[in-house]
């Protein structure tokens, strides 16, 4: 006979919710790293900064208390929002002022022709 669910659901410890949130933070940091890697291909400085932001956020998640703790301030969420805005500004700068790929479509770019993108057969 299955156990009856507890009457007071709010009294249950939020263990799995905390773990799911921790995994969501991990996915977000991985997304930061992926965007940093994409920017790294066109601008090394901006890419390194974005990847460093991901590492910084990961460290803040470990250090700062989560907002579910009474009295905790949502500093890390604000940091993430500001970091994404900064990444967007960096990407905007790279998109507007960066050296975009030129040349006709379906033709290898000069960098690819030099063997930077594809290995020579």
């Amino acid at each position: 006979m299955p156990a009856a669910p507890p009457r007071d659901l709010e009294g249950l410890p939020p263990g799995l919710a905390r773990e799911r949130t921790s995994l969501a933070w991990s996915r977000t940091v991985i997304a930061f790293a992926a965007v940093g890697g994409a920017i790294l291909k066109t601008s090394i400085t901006a890419g390194v900064i974005v990847i460093a932001l991901g590492v910084l956020i990961w460290g803040l998640v470990r250090i700062l208390p989560d907002p579910a703790r009474p009295g905790a301030s949502p500093v890390r969420l604000l940091v993430v929002a500001l970091a994404v805005t900064g990444v967007a500004l960096a990407a905007l700068g790279v998109a507007v002022f960066g050296h975009a790929r030129t040349g006709p479509p379906h033709a290898p770019s000069p960098a690819a022709h030099a063997g930077h993108f594809h290995a020579r057969p």
Partner: peptide
Amino acid sequence: LAWTRTALAFIAAGLAIVQLLPP
């Protein structure tokens, strides 16, 4: 956090369109 990842995906897509697509 899910909205944050959505934002990062949009940024990566926009950057890829400008930088990686042929004209």
